[in-house]
Amino acid sequence: MSIINDLKEIIKPYTENKIALENISEDTDLLKDLNINSANLVDIVLDVEEKFGITIDDASMNKMLTVKATIAVIEEKLAQNAG
């Protein structure tokens, strides 16, 4: 399963915009397109940490505004853990 599919499952409980979620792509903006508020964004980050077994610092969390940026942070953290 790809990271984007995992993200879709993680985000599902936090957005009411199911159409945008179904059409999720790397260009999807979590706040604007999926109407996720900053409190829910923190919940998503915690769920991502749990799902992937990574720790996301504040600087990385602040980058996680689009799907593409979120995937990049996840991949970076996974690579750090693998090293």
Rank of each mutant, 00 (worst) to 15 (best):
S2W: 05
I3K: 04
I4C: 07
I4F: 04
L7W: 01
K8Y: 05
K8C: 07
E9V: 09
I10E: 05
P13N: 10
P13I: 05
T15S: 05
E16D: 15
E16G: 14
E16F: 08
K18R: 12
K18S: 12
I19E: 15
A20D: 06
N23S: 14
I24R: 05
S25H: 05
S25R: 09
E26R: 06
E26F: 00
D27R: 14
T28M: 07
T28Y: 04
D29G: 11
L30E: 05
L30W: 03
L31E: 15
L34R: 10
N35T: 03
I36S: 04
I36W: 03
I36M: 05
N37F: 00
N37T: 00
N37E: 09
A39T: 11
D43W: 03
D47N: 15
E49H: 05
E49C: 10
K51E: 14
F52K: 12
G53Q: 04
I54K: 00
I54Y: 01
I54F: 01
T55Y: 08
I56L: 01
D57F: 06
A59M: 09
A59N: 13
M61E: 12
M61T: 10
M61Y: 13
N62D: 15
K63N: 13
K63H: 10
M64W: 03
K68R: 12
K68W: 00
K68F: 02
A69M: 02
A69R: 03
T70V: 09
T70E: 10
A72Y: 01
V73L: 06
I74W: 01
I74F: 02
E75H: 07
A79S: 12
A79L: 12
Q80G: 01
Q80W: 06
N81E: 15
N81G: 08
A82H: 13
A82L: 11
